Simulated scan of single mutants.
Amino acid sequence: MKLPPLVPGTLIRRYKRFLADVTLDTGETITAHCANPGAMLGLNEPGNRVWLSKSDNPKRKLAYSWELVEVNGTLVGINTSMPNKLAEEAIEAGRIAELTGYASLRREVKYGQNSRIDILLEDDQKPLTYVEVKNVHLMRQPGLAEFPDSVTARGAKHLVELGDMAEQGHRAVMLYLVQYPGTQRFTLADDIDPKYAAALDIAKGRGVETLCYGCDISPEAITLSYQLDIDI
């Protein structure tokens, strides 16, 4: 996925979850929108190099959005609105082998209890396939990606609803998309949210599949490109 032209800067602070003060390379200090509800452990340190997109919509309160952060020389994607688009692009390009061969793909389809599935795959010769996508950007040990980075009751609810779909005879897939290049393995951060870990264990017992894919990232593009081993 191509990114819009990005503006580099230095992080001053991230606060109120969705706000970040940044000093641009031009010397100007601005407040950017941070589309990430998580704790962003290890990513929101003052002084980190960041890359922002800028909207030309005059009605937006904040023109800039935080997209990438550099950690130890690695660019990490922190925008949690990106993974659904990345997954859609990868599925349509055939880069996720387990999710190929469907006639159609739809986004944000209503299902469950007042929820929307991230991706619904449909084909007359296959069961309906419900795909929930989660952004992963936590790495506390070299090469090991973890989810979640904060408590997510909403994420646990999604696992229950995926389990419901599996028990109804559909296919249900939990896709973890890692926007932290250089990772080889994925696991759950059960010390951060043990209830989510328990919910996934139950969901797997009900027939929910788990997949994990990583990305290559540059200031110009983010591309889903390789599969990670899952240690759960």
Results as ranks from 00 to 15, higher is better:
D118R: 02
L75W: 11
P58S: 01
N114S: 10
G73D: 08
T80H: 07
Y102L: 06
L41E: 07
V71P: 08
G94N: 07
N57Y: 02
K54V: 14
G73S: 06
E89L: 13
V71M: 10
T100F: 03
N48W: 01
L68N: 02
E108L: 09
P37T: 01
L52G: 00
I119K: 02
G77R: 10
E92M: 09
R49G: 04
A93G: 08
L86E: 01
E70M: 11
A97K: 14
L68G: 09
L75M: 12
S104C: 10
W51F: 15
Q113G: 05
G38W: 06
E45V: 05
Y102D: 11
E98R: 09
K85W: 04
E88I: 12
R106K: 15
Y64W: 09
E70G: 11
L52M: 01
I91T: 09
M40H: 07
P46K: 00
A103L: 13
Q113S: 11
G101D: 08
E45W: 00
D56W: 06
I78K: 04
V69Q: 04
E88V: 13
P46C: 00
L105R: 08
A103E: 14
L41H: 07
E88N: 14
R60I: 11
P46R: 01
N44D: 14
E98M: 06
G112D: 12
T80A: 11
I91F: 13
V71C: 12
I78C: 12
K54M: 12
L52Y: 02
N57Q: 05
V50Y: 12
K59L: 08
S115G: 03
E92F: 08
L68P: 13
L43Q: 07
A39I: 00
G77A: 07
P46F: 01
A90F: 13
S81Y: 14
N44Y: 03
Q113R: 13
S65P: 03
I119E: 03
G38L: 04
L105H: 10
I91C: 08
V69M: 09
L62W: 11
L52P: 03
G101Y: 02
L68W: 14
V109R: 13
D118F: 06
V71K: 15
Y111I: 06
I117P: 05
N44P: 02
A63S: 15
R95T: 05
A97E: 15
G47I: 00
L52C: 04
N44V: 04
S53T: 10
I91M: 12
M40V: 03
N72M: 04
I119D: 01
K54Q: 14
E108N: 12
R60L: 15
E45Y: 03
G94L: 08
A97Y: 06
T100H: 07
G47F: 02
K54I: 08
G42I: 00
E92K: 12
E67V: 11
E45T: 08
A93P: 06
A87C: 11
Y64K: 03
P37H: 01
R116Y: 11
A87W: 12
A90C: 05
L105V: 12
R116S: 10
E45G: 04
S81N: 14
N72G: 11
G47T: 00
K54N: 05
G73Y: 06
K61N: 04
K61W: 03
R95G: 05
K85D: 09
V76K: 11
L68S: 06
A63F: 13
D118N: 09
E108H: 07
P83E: 15
V109W: 07
